Simulated assay, not measured.
Amino acid sequence: MSHTKRHASRHHPGSDWVVQDVRSYAYWRAGVDDCAACGVDVALDDDHYGMELFRERATEGKLGVERERLVFCSRGCVDAWLH
């Protein structure tokens, strides 16, 4: 049986999230993740783009930071997701 992968791009996080870094990678780690824009499988040990988002969070009287990493198959997908 064939399985069709349905994908909608990841929603943009709220305005409290900030894009900290976008860079190309030739290798990040072993594994596969979905492109945040188009949904294709992205091999993390091959050429791809990574984006790091962060936001400040209050935790028990201290200021903490929450991070999220998104993966993209191409610069075009990065640009499409940003705009």
Rank of each mutant, 00 (worst) to 15 (best):
Q20G: 03
H83I: 06
Y49D: 01
H83N: 10
G61P: 08
S74Y: 02
A58T: 11
A30M: 11
T59Q: 09
C73H: 00
R10E: 15
R57Y: 04
L53D: 01
D34G: 05
L70M: 09
K62Y: 15
G14W: 01
T59A: 11
E60N: 12
G76E: 12
S24F: 07
Q20F: 02
V78H: 03
V32S: 00
E60S: 10
G64E: 07
P13W: 03
D21C: 04
R10V: 15
R23K: 14
A26F: 12
H12D: 07
F72W: 11
T4F: 11
Q20E: 14
Y25H: 15
V71N: 00
R6K: 14
K5Q: 13
R57W: 04
G31T: 08
L82E: 11
A43W: 07
R10C: 11
V22M: 02
V65K: 09
R55A: 02
Q20I: 06
K5L: 11
R29K: 14
V78G: 03
A8S: 11
V18P: 01
M1T: 11
G76W: 01
A80F: 10
G39R: 02
L63A: 12
R69S: 13
R69P: 00
G76D: 13
V18D: 06
S9K: 15
R6L: 13
H11I: 09
S9L: 14
R23A: 14
T59I: 11
L53P: 02
A58R: 12
D21Y: 04
G50L: 05
V22Y: 03
R55M: 06
A43Y: 08
T4I: 13
V65D: 03
G76H: 05
D16H: 11
V19T: 10
D33L: 04
R67W: 02
Q20M: 10
A26M: 14
E66V: 13
C73P: 00
D47P: 10
M1Y: 07
Q20N: 08
G76N: 09
V19Y: 03
E68C: 05
E68S: 06
P13Q: 05
L53W: 01
E56K: 15
D34R: 10
G31F: 08
G39H: 06
S9W: 14
R23E: 12
E68N: 07
A80P: 01
G39P: 04
C77D: 04
R29A: 07
K62S: 15
C77F: 00
W28R: 15
D45E: 13
A26N: 15
K62W: 14
H83K: 09
G50K: 03
F54A: 06
L53R: 04
F72V: 09
A8L: 10
W17D: 05
W28C: 11
P13S: 02
H7F: 15
R10F: 13
V78A: 04
S9T: 13
V32D: 00
A8D: 09
V71E: 01
R10I: 14
L70T: 03
V71W: 01
L70S: 03
G64D: 12
D46Y: 05
D46C: 10
S24P: 07
G76I: 02
G39N: 05
L53G: 01
H12T: 09
E66T: 08
